[in-house]
């Protein structure tokens, strides 16, 4: 069996990325580097325009001394990890009960029409993608959506327009 040398492992990421992952590693017991896998996946996903390649997952596996399959398992289990390209702005719309009864369907329809895409698709220019999500714990502001790290609540089609216009 070949082992990856320490030097090989650290070469895979920039010093900044390494420092960020190391901050996660430091939170857990030394023999539990694997605990940092969720943090590492998110850091690399953000760095790679919002999605994860097999290469990136393999690099994480090497860096955290984990089998690659264990990293794939995590990446496929959690809904916030993307294994295919997404738009520069990933628009996540909640359609669970409190949002549904506050007309999230109108927001969804408006977005689909405006962007010309459905849930799970990316606009041709790569700027936007649409995703249906489950309750985001902001039902008091229904209907709501998340774009990037930001929540937007009490939406109307007009408010959605203004939000999208404000994005780069």
């Amino acid at each position: 069996m070949t082992t990856t040398t320490a030097k090989d492992k650290t070469k895979r990421f920039t010093p900044e990325i390494r420092a960020e992952i190391d901050r996660w590693i430091a939170k857990y017991p030394p023999e539990w580097k694997q605990s940092a896998v969720m943090g590492a996946l998110m850091i690399l996903q953000d760095d790679n325009g919002g999605w994860l390649t097999t290469q990136l997952m393999d690099d994480i596996a090497a860096y955290l001394d984990m089998p690659a399959i264990a990293v794939y398992e995590v990446a496929t289990f959690y809904s916030m990890y993307e294994l295919k390209p997404v738009g520069k702005h990933k628009i996540c719309v909640c359609t669970n009960v409190s949002c549904m009864t506050n007309k999230s369907d109108i927001i969804v329809e408006h977005l689909e029409k405006k962007l010309g895409i459905r849930f799970g698709q990316v606009t041709e220019d790569g700027r936007f993608s649409l995703k249906e999500v489950e309750c985001l714990g902001a039902c008091g502001g229904a209907p709501m959506m998340q774009i990037g790290k930001q929540y937007y609540e009490n939406l109307t089609p007009e408010i959605v327009d203004a939000i999208l216009e404000g994005l780069e």
Binding site: S35, L41, Y78
Partner: peptide, 23 residues
Amino acid sequence: HLGAGAYICGEETALLESIEGKK
């Protein structure tokens, strides 16, 4: 520890698994 989108991780033992870096 930050989750990554999975309702089931609110169940206490799933949550522990998740902190351990597993599904």
